[in-house]
């Protein structure tokens, strides 16, 4: 507290380095946890470490990673989106239905449809939260039922079977590039692009700025409303992409597609170190969290554990990850105090 000025400055630098180290540690922690999980499952079962099984894990992690990335973008602004699953379902059903009616449509044209739908749905969320000043949970809980209900109404109890989808849609998700599933490659590309956008572009940095300190961002001259609206729109676009991939992967598109994914995406993001109080974490972490969840799922299946344990473990994991983040945050505060830099 009473350290000389220059020493305090030096300490402040040191503590800042310590914070950066801890934050980096958070993602390294996820990797260590993942390695531990992998070792555990490899010891307990003899099928976990086969190429075929690991490819399965990668494919199921891929779509969840995109959804977690979408959730993370919104979480970074200190908000939340529980309509992620509903947006995926809405975009997936409409796209699949369109593809079934127009089988001759070119792939690049079809891909644009879910992205546009996602952008529109996400923008509605963003308008409600940013300009309507509706708390994020309430707004997206409302739109979740709205989007899912509209999907039901549109579908009239029908479903789009895989035989009605264009064949290229179904084969492309199973394709491989040099042994790597295309799905995993696409997800990695999307996550890296979003990460680079958040890391190196002014608009991306604004998302972090608004999330970590809205007041400071306001005095700096940032329009928080626009930033939040953009984050929700980006979230919607990513959900549209995830919805299309999910539809292509499962083949038969029903109205309940991706229900419950708001929970999984949030769990993945939070496990990956994205803070629910905004401004901290990265989409790479969120994607790693998705890999952790997919690994747990796969391991539980291999161990023949009943499916409901998955829900229980996912819920406990959210609480544990939030508690870990709170502990890290208070640790950082404590270290700042003892180092004499306020």
């Amino acid at each position: 507290m009473s350290a000389p000025d220059d020493a305090a400055v030096g300490n402040r630098k040191g503590s800042r380095r310590a914070i950066a180290f801890v934050l980096r540690l958070r993602e390294a922690g996820v990797l260590v946890f993942l390695a531990a999980l992998g070792t555990l499952f490899a010891v307990l079962t003899n099928t976990f470490l086969t190429t075929q099984n690991l490819t399965t894990v990668a494919s199921s992690a891929a779509i969840l990673a995109i959804a977690a990335c979408a959730q993370a973008v919104v979480l970074l602004t200190r908000n939340l989106d529980v309509s992620v699953g509903a947006m995926m379902g809405f975009a997936a059903y409409l796209t699949a239905d369109f593809a079934a009616r127009h089988p001759a449509i070119a792939p690049w044209q079809l891909v644009l449809i879910p992205l546009a739908i996602g952008a529109a749905l996400g923008a509605i969320n963003g308008l409600l939260v940013a300009y309507g000043k509706v708390p994020a949970l309430i707004a997206t809980l409302g739109t979740m039922s709205l989007y899912r209900g509209l999907t039901y109404v549109y579908a009239h109890g029908q479903e789009v079977t895989s035989s009605r989808l264009p064949p290229w849609m179904l084969t492309s998700v199973d394709a491989r590039i040099a042994g790597v599933p295309l799905l995993a490659a696409a997800a990695t590309a999307i996550v890296v692009i979003v990460w680079a956008f958040l890391q190196y572009f002014p608009w991306g940095r604004r998302i972090y700025a608004v999330g970590s300190n809205p007041l400071a961002a306001f005095y700096f001259g940032l329009r928080a409303e626009r930033v939040v609206l953009m984050a929700y729109t980006l979230c919607g676009v990513l959900c549209g992409a995830a919805g299309l991939l999910y539809a292509a992967r499962v083949g038969t598109v029903t109205v309940v597609l991706a229900s419950g994914w708001e929970m999984s995406s949030l769990a993945a993001a939070v496990i990956g170190g994205v803070s629910v109080s905004g401004g901290a974490g990265s989409v790479i972490g969120a994607a790693l969290g998705a890999v952790v969840l997919a690994t747990i799922d796969n391991g539980l299946v291999l161990l023949a554990v009943p499916e409901f344990w998955r829900m229980f473990i996912q819920g406990v994991a959210i609480v544990a990850a939030v508690a870990a983040d709170a502990a890290i945050a208070s640790g950082i505060r404590a270290s700042l105090r003892t180092r004499g830099a306020k």
Partner: peptide, 14 residues
């Protein structure tokens, strides 16, 4: 919000 969201899943699983 995060705690009870986690609890929502955990209690449902329970």
């Amino acid at each position: 919000l995060a705690v009870t969201l986690g609890a929502m899943g955990a209690y449902r699983g329970l």
